[in-house]
Design a protein around this nucleic acid. Sequence first.
RNA 1: GGCCCCAUCGACUAGUGGUUAGGUCACCACCCUUUCAAGGUGGUUGCACGGGUUCGAAUCCCGUUGGGGCUACCA
Length: 484
Amino acid sequence: MVRVRFAPSPTGYLHVGGLRTALYNYLFAKQQGGTFVLRIEDTDRTRLVEGAVENLIDALNWAGVSFDEGPGKDGGYGPYIQSERLEIYQRHAQQLLDQGDAYYAFDTADELTKMRRRQEADKLPTKYDRLAMRNQFTMSPDAVSAALLGDYVVRLKVPAGEEVAFDDLVRDRVSFQSDVIDDQVLLKSDGYPTYHLANVVDDHLMAITHVIRGEEWLPSVPKHLLLYRAFGWTAPVMAHLPLLLNPDRSKLSKRQGDVSVEDYRAKGYLPEALDNFVALLGWHPSDERELFTLAELADAFQLNRVSKAGAVFDIAKLDWLNTQYLRLLPAADLRAKLESVLDAANFTGAERHDAAYLDLVIELMRERVRKVEEFYSFSHYFFRDPTGYDPTGVEKRWKPDETGNLIVALRDRLADLPDFEPTAIETALRHTAEANGVGAGALIHPARLALSGETQGPGLFELIAALGRDRVVRRLARAVETLG
RNA sequence: GGCCCCAUCGACUAGUGGUUAGGUCACCACCCUUUCAAGGUGGUUGCACGGGUUCGAAUCCCGUUGGGGCUACCA
């Protein structure tokens, strides 16, 4: 029975790299008929963020990466929030102490810094040197004088001269020499466990079979393996995923762009697109498909096809995927999204849109936008009269002394047009052009400019029909006033 | 400084000893066309380097170089 987990620390948002890790865990669980557990690793009291867990779960739900067990969904392995499991970690730390696999240490931050600086200068690995005499105590410091010793931590006693090796599902065999492994702090002076202790204890107690996580954890695997051994437990199978990278190939960071799922959600990316994109960052099927639903991903996903090298997060491909999914979205769904975009844009125009009008906008703009918010930012003129005219367009298309008259003629013609629909409008426009001895282009381009302020957009005749007679007549007149 | 990981087009990748090195995004050109998109067609661009092993290496081994991660009483 496969059991996997996603174990984020509640920093306040879900990182896209975290989303990919969660997704791979989810896919693997779905495919194996296993269980996907969400566990919150909040053992750093200095970094607590209000509402972070709720945000995390909200983002996961939005992405469709739902967990089977976790906070609020007890599967018999809870609690799933580490700060609620303190007693468990302390008990296990005590066990290691009793066995002689861990010891108390009393160094100050300053002493530790000096030690590391010295080691670095001597070209040695930086690790705890066990030199302080007071670290030889293995009895409880309560039994000694607390006043004498001050704060203490519990450290793992790493054995000397051993090779610690394991087989990683994506990296094959990886090995370390125990002599360079630090005597990791297990229990902090505030009584909270570090990641390493809590992670190992919980993965075991929660019966996790496969640990699928980011490559940044690879160097701490030997410490964890030593812990499993000390407890007499079997370690889960490991799979370390390649990192997500900035365009300069450093670890994907906030500084160089959006990293949170919420950012992409707010920008109008669809969850299907983000999932599909992120799934393809570090994994690829053996065939040449690019578009996948979550179910198709679960079907095709293979951990041993995950690549080893880091992957650059390339927004251009995300945009492309988003347009693909935007096209598949039913008009009603799109309309709901457009409405919330309009609300977000503080749309307060008098010409409040009805559903039929929004559907028309969607139909005309669908092939021209990459994100939902562009339904508004690229097509504001469906909702407001233009506030200006593209200067380059004016220079190129609006001829002084000539265009104004043509537009007036077109306005008059459209004002009286009985059938205000694209075909009739096109006929009317072409007749107007002919009657004035000019080509249709001499009318089409300036008309677009007058109606939208832009040089690009949907077909002019469809645009005119969609805007409706009142708006069209008004805008044409205003353009002539403004541009002459 | 130490340890670990990695290395195919600009990006994501396919490729597991014999391929004209394939696909997708991006880019360029052309077609379509009232504009912009979309769509169609075509195209430029890649096995980091040096040694081996082999009849034969993108593929296996070693080294170099380069990149990244970790090196906290953060996760």
